[in-house]
Design a protein around this nucleic acid. Structure first.
Lengths: 195, 195
DNA sequence: ATTTGACTTTTTTACCGAAATGGTCGAAAA
DNA sequence: TTTTCGACCATTTCGGTAAAAAAGTCAAAT
């Protein structure tokens, strides 16, 4: 079976799509645009994907998987849970920044009734919440952390990340990003009360 | 001077306006609606206010002042900075919840190009950041807190609050609100690292 | 197995007059 | 003098519609 070629073209289509989605958003990008960018006829897209939505989901999924594998690879070499959280935050925010165009495109369309985009967001919010919760639980089990209510704490932490994320979409202050992450982590680990 | 009556009518107009803005948002509320609600002719509104925007700003200002005075009154009887922060968070979030209709209305219109609403939001974001910063500074000066970079920490904290605020607009989980505030404050004060 | 042009169906756009809306002004009421 | 409002204007929104553009289908060609 010549699956290779098939996959290669599929991949090239997704790359074209990602570029365009990041630049123009979901709505403003047409199937024709994607096809042209990939030097194919529009109809060909439907040989590889069943719909525009599916293409978009595939693009997002690819980036999500890429992110997850970066995280997994990075964290598996780290023993200290605290350090894992540090790395997670740092990679997470920088990755977000790199993809901010795509995210911004999502965000714009997303408050325009595109409920399938909202579903995608919720899906990943849930996943992130779960991931954070697992990290915290592990830290507690290893006696590194001391947390009364892990569920609420995870939620607070996930919310805090999203709060940090929001202004990044608007003005891209790359300068302060690391400082802000540090500040958040410093609070998270040690709090502000003097001892 | 019979300023009393003037002020009374003005107030009644603002009450009508607030009700309607909270229900329908800025755009869907017409000057006629406000006038009818207050049993006046539309033209009369312009005797008390110069424009629709001004009415909206006045409504928001009233609520903001009300909030500030609640905060001031509550905090001035508290000596402990930590306790002040607790109270601030609690009142802040509950107040937000009470006004969530108005906020939601703002939020909807706000991503619809109403840049004057965006300005209002930014204004209050700035004020909140400043307020938080002052609280932290006071805590540090009184040797209650130990914070490396107050600016970044304030920013992180303000972001965290806004992150917590966001899901409240969507689903109104009153149940978990207090727990989540507690979780956030617990992190803020003591961190999660075991000692 | 892959591509595409011709085709159908659905969605968006452009445009129009009508209605609604924000805002003004001066006369009238209080 | 202070307050109210009807008549009025300018601009924006709305409803409906025809044309354009887009998504999606399919069978023939490669």
């Amino acid at each position: 079976m010549k699956k290779e070629k098939h996959d290669k073209i599929r991949k090239s289509l997704l790359e074209s799509a990602e570029q365009l989605f990041a630049r123009f958003g979901f709505e403003k990008t047409t199937m024709n645009d994607i096809a042209n960018e990939a030097r194919k006829g529009k109809s060909s897209l439907y040989y590889y994907f069943s719909s525009k939505e599916e293409i978009f989901k595939a693009v997002v999924t690819i980036e999500a998987e890429r992110f997850k594998s970066i995280i997994t690879e990075t964290l598996e070499n780290i023993d200290d849970t605290k350090e894992q959280i540090k790395q997670y935050f740092s990679i997470r925010m920088h990755r977000f920044q790199e993809l901010s165009n795509l995210y911004a495109a999502m965000r714009n369309d997303y408050l325009r009734k595109l409920d399938f985009i909202e579903k995608i967001r919720k899906q990943y919010d849930r996943e992130e919440l779960e991931f954070i919760q697992n990290l915290l639980e592990k830290g507690v089990n290893r006696d590194e952390f001391e947390i009364k209510n892990i569920t609420d704490t995870s939620f607070a932490l996930a919310s805090a990340i999203k709060g940090l994320e929001y202004p990044m979409v608007l003005h891209k202050d790359e300068t302060n990003l690391d400082h802000r992450i540090d500040a958040l982590l410093s609070i998270l680990f040690y709090g502000i009360v003097k001892r």
